[in-house]
Write a protein that binds this DNA or RNA. Structure first.
Length: 210
DNA sequence: TACGAATAAAATTCAGACGG
DNA sequence: CCGTCTGAATTTTATTCGTA
């Protein structure tokens, strides 16, 4: 529950939001704000305004708009910038299938994406940063499928196993796979691949090109 | 000196926040 | 919605280290 007041005109704007900072930013940047408030800011300057928090709840079960309506009622309506006596919110609104389809279509050309080629602000980066226990992956395990994907993506040097007479025995996607096949340490595989020496007096390992 | 274990480095997926 | 981001988890590959 917030209030932005103009000290000179003695007028107030009452608002509420799930994300206080985000909503305040809307008003400060003049996007999706209240037009009366915006005009007044333009006229008197932002330094004529003060910002007050009336109520602060972390519990999502608290219906902020109900409280907001009560607060609005407690002021003479003509002393407010607000247009509506009843507060409402789009919290929990779901896009229609049509709207989603439209968005998808527009974004098919990825240069059309609002973020295309842009950099995030320092502030946004700070919000995104989640070190330690705050990280969504903290203390979680990757699934077998995920591990497989990672393995596949990382294995870009296929290897071929030859015998002493240069006959191809088998090909492998990476060193680990070959190590398992021979039941030998992967360190050894890497070493012999690099040196080109004969392994166990039997095998030669080379990079495989098809 | 040769091996495997341990560790480091680089690269990748994942889940989640941001924001037009 | 989806492109821009992050850090944890995990993998492959490269390097270091102790042991016989």
């Amino acid at each position: 529950m917030i209030n932005i007041s103009n000290l000179i005109k003695r007028k107030e704007y009452i608002g509420s939001s799930k994300d206080l900072y985000q909503r305040l930013l809307d008003h400060l940047k003049g996007r999706d704000s209240n037009i009366r408030l915006q005009r007044s800011i333009a006229k008197y300057g932002i330094e004529s305004f003060i910002f007050v928090i009336y109520y602060w709840y972390k519990d999502p079960a608290v219906i902020l708009t109900d409280i907001e309506t009560e607060v609005i009622k407690s002021f003479p309506f003509e002393d407010l910038y607000n247009f509506k006596k009843e507060a409402n919110s789009s919290l929990g609104y779901k896009h229609t299938i049509k709207a989603i389809r439209k968005m998808k279509l527009r974004l098919k050309d990825k240069t059309k994406h609002p973020m295309y080629g842009k950099k995030h602000s320092i502030f946004a980066l700070g919000k995104i940063s989640k070190p330690g226990v705050k990280n969504p992956m903290f203390n979680k395990k990757h699934t077998i499928e995920t591990k497989k994907k990672m393995s596949l993506a990382k294995s870009k040097t296929p290897l071929a196993l030859y015998n002493k007479n240069n006959n191809l025995i088998k090909t492998f996607t990476n060193q680990v796979e070959l190590a398992q096949y021979l039941n030998i340490s992967k360190s050894t595989i890497g070493r012999y691949l690099k040196s080109g020496n004969i392994l166990l007096d039997k095998f030669i390992i080379r990079k495989f090109k098809e």
